[in-house]
Design a protein around this nucleic acid. Structure first.
Lengths: 243, 243
DNA sequence: GAGTGGTCTAGACCACGAG
DNA sequence: TCGTGGTCTAGACCACTCA
């Protein structure tokens, strides 16, 4: 059962884990590694592919294979109200938002409970930590009956800064649907992750006290650096136990 | 940049989607497909690998590649109390449970807030729907101070049947941590999924009113057939909108 | 034993990045 | 231009399934 690529992947994994190859360093070229392990290049590449899926190695075309920096774990906190203290602390996050006016179609009509072609505002949020992107979100808000009671500047963009202040009236219902899947090629490109790295996809629908849907957020988080936490009672202690 | 494998994958995907190849049917052999598309076998196989990741095709060694049956979407409902009506309805689920006595170690001590080597009971749950497994769970319960007030037969095994009855006293806190990742080789084998198919991993920790942790459940659900839903207010209406 | 997928080879050619 | 990874080939051999 120990296929060659497995053996090679395990060996490289260990070299990375033990620090013999440090974060940010370049691996020897694929040709060198192939001859070192006395395998052909396709075999070696399939070993690297495994490390790539695990987020240990990043391939850069024309440059080489690089050991990824260890990732600070991101915690998404469900319930729509509070933010994990840990994440809030090192929120050296740059969040870029692109606002567009669109029309409801497909899933969105069902999610937002609006008629097809209803006017919506789309917020396309992309949050970076340092130079690497770490999450993306598409947030849709009904545009038609503009209610003045909902603050609307940096929107509920994945909750990073806007949730820090508790100046928002609590919503009647927040419903979050979570799934695991592989990223689309767009998402992989935007998040700069391997297309074989699983992502956590969260669809958050928030309704106000009248039952009207106030926002629908489609969040995509890289699986190797994001957790989502949902608790019936919010505890302030309890630090994340790493996996 | 349409690579050959992409073109082939798209073509096969469409043939499956349009029903030209029906669910359960066997695809032509890889050699036949390779010659049909005039590519080499490795190239063709990489195209099939993509379909495999998406859960469209299942490879069976020595038999062939088969189109998977469309999957009924499983919904895991968070909060630890109720069960989705949809899932409950077609819960033609056989749940097999293996019970073992183990000792707390590693993460478990932190999760359960017990000392290392504390005695635990491990429930290894595997739920099947028809012939294909659809989720697995490892559930740990402290064994030391046996409290008689907690029912313990078919345990909180992924919540399928035992949650239907509301005879259990509500827990003080249920905390669920969700992540997306690729399955371990064990999990892939147990769930009979491709090792490249993302899984939804849910760690559920339930504590009673005294703050004592009553159970820690490690659930693994195949990403292509499972969603998890968390809502602040449980709505009984609202059917799942398919992705 | 015939047919299938699983793995691997030893090259080839192309596309990208940097000097 | 040179070295890198990205893609692909045309086989080979092994392991598994089924008759």
């Amino acid at each position: 059962m120990p296929s060659r690529r497995h053996v090679i992947a395990d060996d490289l994994r260990e070299q990375i884990a033990t620090g013999r190859i440090k974060a940010g360093e370049r691996l020897p070229s694929e040709a060198q590694l192939a001859s070192h392990y006395t395998v052909s290049t396709p075999t070696l590449r399939s070993a690297l592919a495994a490390l790539q899926c695990e987020g240990l190695v990043e391939k850069i075309h024309g440059k080489g294979n690089f050991v990824c920096h260890p990732l600070r774990r991101i915690t998404y906190v469900g319930g729509g109200h509070m933010l994990d203290a840990q994440t809030a602390a090192d929120a050296a996050l740059r969040v870029s938002v692109r606002t567009t006016k669109v029309r409801a179609r497909g899933h969105l009509t069902a999610l937002l409970r609006v008629a097809a072609n209803s006017p919506l505002t789309e917020f396309l949020c992309l949050s970076h930590e340092g130079k690497s992107p770490h999450s993306m979100a598409r947030i849709y808000v009904p545009r038609d009956p503009v209610p003045a009671d909902v603050p609307r500047e940096p929107p509920w963009c994945e909750g990073v800064e806007s949730r820090l202040a508790d100046l928002r009236p609590p919503l009647a219902e927040v419903r979050e649907t979570v799934s695991a899947r592989l990223p689309t090629s767009e998402e992989a490109a935007t998040l700069r992750i391997s297309s074989a790295l699983a992502v956590l996809a969260i669809t958050r629908v928030a309704a106000d006290t009248t039952g009207r849907v106030v926002e629908a957020a489609l969040l995509v988080l890289p699986g190797n650096r994001a957790n989502a936490v949902f608790a019936t009672h919010h505890t302030t202690e309890e630090k994340g136990t790493e996996g």
